[in-house]
Design a protein around this nucleic acid. Sequence first.
DNA 1: AGTGCGATTGACT
DNA 2: GTCAATCGCACTA
Length: 205
Amino acid sequence: MLPPPNLNPSVLSRAELPAETVALARFLIGKLLVRRLPEGNASGRIVEAEAYVVGDAAGHAYRGMTPRNRSLFLEHGHAYVCLVRGRSYLMNVSSERAGIGAGVLIRALEPCDGIALMQRNRGTARLLDLARGPGRLAQALQIDRRLDGVDLCCDGALWLGGDGCPPCAIERSKRIGIRRDAWRLLRFYCANNRFVSGQRRPNNC
DNA sequence: AGTGCGATTGACT
DNA sequence: GTCAATCGCACTA
C-alpha cells in the first residue's frame, strides 16, 4: 500500500508530462486524477494504465480521426472519453503531438479524496470496487462524454495532480480485454496494489 | 438506412 | 467459471 496521499495536489503542467505514449503511461502511475464536482473533489491515485501507441491496431485512433476519437489527436494531456458496450465510459489521456492519435487508458484508481461521494456515485460502499476498472473509475468520478477533450493540465473539472506523489514499483503486462495487438506489453500497474483491476476479489475485503 | 460490435461490468451457475 | 445487457458509431450498400 502506498503512503497517505496529498489531498491538495498541484496541477501537473504540460511541460512535466512526457509526450511519448509509453513514457506517459509509466509516468502517470502514482499520480492523481482529480474531479471537481459541486459537492467537492473526488480523486484517486492512478495505479493502472495502458498505452495505446501510434500504429497500434488495438487503439481507437488506428483507422484515423473520426468524430468519436478526435480528442486522441489533441496535444498530450487532454481527456479522451468514450463509451464502450453501451454502458461504460473510459477515460484516456491523449499523448504525442497534436495531430497524432494515441493515448493512455486509465484503468484503476486508489481512492484518495471524496470517498463518500464516490461511494454514492457507484452505489456501493466497498472501497475496492469504487475505481478498480476503467468503467467503475469513470462512474465514481462522474466522467462522461461531456468531459471529452478537456485540458487535464488546467485547474478545471478534471485534471492531473502530482505534487508529493511518491513513486511506486511498476510492473508491466499484456493489456486487458483486447483482441488485436494483444501480445504487446503495454499495461503498467503498481506492484502489490489491491486497487489494480484484472484480478478477482473475494467478497470479504 | 441497416448492421455488427466493442479498451466492460455485474449477475448468475 | 459463464454470459448477456446496451448503444453510439463506423462500415457497408
